[in-house]
Design a protein around this nucleic acid. Structure first.
Lengths: 138, 138
DNA sequence: GCGCTATTGACAACGGTTGTCAATAGCGAT
DNA sequence: ATCGCTATTGACAACCGTTGTCAATAGCGC
């Protein structure tokens, strides 16, 4: 069940990506993260950005939201991952600025599993994201 | 608020697409629909498939599910659209075969809106899909 | 049958994401 | 410090789903 943690090297690029993710207050697309890095005058290849995001997502260090247009957005989640996989939760995301709030809904979780089980489904997972406009734009 | 219904012509291709959608018991990607048409020996261009799906989605005649990998899947929804936009609902979708069940969860709807409102968000919408394995595969 | 125009479809273009592979650079061992 | 192994990087091409283009086709009202 447990993966042998692959040897990991700390690099300038990885650190820069972590920093941008840490300072971001909402979801970022890979492109947005890339642009933010360039704005910081940190030279990091786009491919590298994707690679890090993918690994971070696999490790559960960032949450991934697939937007209605199919593009993925990422956000560092929870209390900076002390190693434990983050607890399951969802997001309330601002369509305009990406600002987001983590939300939990135990009722919804159990509801989803109950509905799925009633229909004879196994190996159940679900996606749930709430989009709206936070009150900070003219 | 209401759009002036654009003049609509009935074509062989449109009918073929409708038929495949009607006979499908689950969500289909545009490609899958295209393949199904070819299997029926109906010659319909892929571009045309996309165009019809897009319009059907806009009209609310089909539901759209964006899968975790970002690809969109479509399914004719409800009682064959008598003109009224379908009532809001969600789906329980089989990862393997696309078979799906429409589900409703008034509790979830109100929960989502309450959570969003509490956080000061307006113009709220949400996505919710449940994925699993229906019991029909070896 | 005529004419207007919605529709079609082959093709190119686009945008996000992933594969490739030689060059680079961590890090443990010497 | 240095060496060597290998994870990582990055420029580039490839992929894939989707949309734009535009001349040719075909509904439908007349």
């Amino acid at each position: 069940m447990s993966e042998v943690a692959a040897r990991r090297r700390s690099t300038r690029q990885g650190a820069a990506i972590d920093e941008v993710l840490a300072s971001a207050d909402g979801f970022l697309t890979a492109q947005a993260l890339y642009d933010a890095l360039r704005a910081r005058r940190e030279s990091v290849g786009l491919t590298t950005v994707y690679r890090h995001l993918r690994r971070l997502a696999e490790d559960g260090a960032v949450d991934v939201v697939v937007r209605p247009d199919g593009e993925a957005a990422f956000r560092r989640c929870g209390p900076a991952a002390s190693g434990e996989p983050e607890q399951h939760h969802h997001h309330l995301v601002c369509r305009t600025c990406g600002y987001s709030v983590e939300i939990e809904g135990p009722e919804v979780e159990s509801w989803a599993h109950r509905v799925a089980a009633d229909a004879g489904f196994t190996n159940v997972s679900h996606t749930l994201e709430i989009f709206g406009e936070c009150g900070r734009h003219a």
